[in-house]
Structures are given as structure tokens and as C-alpha cells.
């Protein structure tokens, strides 16, 4: 379960203070599929970064499985990102020097999983997203949709409970976007919590619940 309490984030850009999040209170249950929608600059990505343990709040708190992540060290946060959370980015963010298999195996590499196990599981995960014949390809040799599926396989690498997607269909065509949503729905059926940020109403409609954001606040 993910729970925020008066979560506030202030960015300081020189003299100017930007309130990215204002007193956000939100609860996401285990196994939920939730979409967070809203215009750009509404704070969705900031909220997502907090939930993904990439950033720390200015004030307020965010709990993941009742752990106050604001109190954790950098190393502990890295561990949570590695074990509990799988990230999918709009820009895919694959490592271009590594092939599909190695990209997918990378989080396991950081988790200290042995080479054999790692590569075997990476192969299975690629098959799961329909990329079994792209194992040796570099990201640049694949289409946008395929790259995003590779990124999903990577997100699943350490079998996380939570999948966080920041506009996961934002850079692919509609057809590929549907395939990606199908995969995310499938993962949700496996019992994983899926949190997706989008400004595409159609995508938001496929989630179990949708929360709207504006000016750093979650609307009811």
C-alpha cells in the first residue's frame, strides 16, 4: 500500500519557488490499477517520482508498505527502487550500449543475481512481452513500441509489487499503446499495483480508478 500525508514538494529555481505538490493525501491499495491524469505542470510526474523513491518530499510524508521513505538513506531508497518498484518511462530510458537481454537483466545485476539466473529470467521476461526474437537487438534497432515493451520487461526484472509508468504510451502510436496497456492490465491481474500517469483520457479510462491533478493538488 502507498499512502501520502500532506505531501508537499517545493522546487527552488534561483529566486523563484515552485510548489510542485501541495498537501497531497492519497492512498493506493495493493493490487490497484490507478491512473493519474492532468495537464502538464500539474505535478503528476513529481508525485510519481516521490512514489518511485526517486525524490524526497519537502514536507509531509509518503509511506510505502508503512515505511516512511522520507526517513531513508540514499542506499535504502535504491534498495526499495530495486526490489519493490518497476519503472517505465515515456522516453523508455534504455541503455543504448546494451542489447535487449542485458538491458532487462540490468536491475538483477545491481541486485547481485548470478549471471546464469539473470540471463535466463531476462529471456523469459522478453518472451512475456513478445520480444523473444529480439534478444540480441540494441534498443536503437527496435521500434518505439518494442522499446517500451523491453522497458516493461526490465521493470519486471526483480519481480516488483509496484509498476510505475510515466506516460508509458506517450511516445508510441495508438496500436502499440494498446499493446502496452494490455500488458499492464495483465500485470495488474497478476496482483501487481499499477500506477500510470497520463493525459490521454482513453488510457485513463482503462484504469480501475482515475485521479485528476491540477496545480499540485489532487482533485476529488
Amino acid at each position: 500500500m502507498i499512502r501520502t500525508e500532506n505531501l508537499t514538494k517545493v522546487y527552488r529555481m534561483g529566486e523563484v519557488e515552485v510548489q510542485a505538490l501541495r498537501d497531497v493525501n492519497l492512498e493506493i491499495q495493493d493490487g490497484e490499477f490507478i491512473a493519474i491524469a492532468g495537464p502538464s505542470g500539474s505535478g503528476k510526474s513529481t508525485l510519481l517520482n516521490m512514489m518511485g523513491c526517486l525524490d524526497k518530499p519537502t514536507s509531509g510524508a509518503i509511506f510505502i508498505d508503512d515505511i516512511d521513505t522520507g526517513m531513508l538513506s540514499e542506499n535504502k531508497l535504491a534498495e526499495i527502487r530495486r526490489e519493490k518498484i518497476g519503472f517505465i518511462f515515456q522516453q523508455f530510458n534504455l541503455i543504448h550500449t546494451l542489447n535487449a537481454l542485458e538491458n532487462v537483466a540490468l536491475p538483477m545485476f545491481f541486485a547481485g543475481v548470478g549471471r546464469e539466473t539473470r540471463l535466463k529470467r531476462a529471456e523469459e521476461l522478453l518472451a512475456k512481452v513478445g520480444l523473444e526474437d529480439r534478444v540480441d537487438h540494441k534498443p536503437s534497432e527496435l521500434s518505439g513500441g518494442e522499446q517500451q515493451r523491453m522497458a516493461i520487461a526490465r521493470a519486471l526484472s526483480n519481480d516488483p509489487e509496484i509498476i510505475i509508468g510515466d506516460e508509458p504510451t506517450g511516445n508510441v502510436d495508438t496500436e502499440a499503446g494498446n499493446v502496452i496497456m494490455d500488458i499492464l492490465e495483465g500485470l495488474n491481474r497478476e496482483g501487481r499495483t499499477i500506477i500510470v500517469v497520463t493525459h490521454d483520457a482513453e488510457i485513463a479510462a482503462r484504469a480501475g480508478r482515475t485521479k485528476r491533478m491540477r496545480d499540485g493538488k489532487v482533485l476529488d
Partner: peptide, 16 residues
């Protein structure tokens, strides 16, 4: 820089 950010986002520690 970007690659390092990605590695950290998917769970690399500073030490890694």
C-alpha cells in the same frame, strides 16, 4: 549523466 540516472532509477546504489 542520463544513463547514470536510469541506472539509479532501476536500483543501482551510489556504490555500484
Amino acid at each position: 549523466t542520463h544513463e547514470i540516472g536510469v541506472m539509479k532509477a532501476i536500483g543501482a546504489k551510489s556504490r555500484d
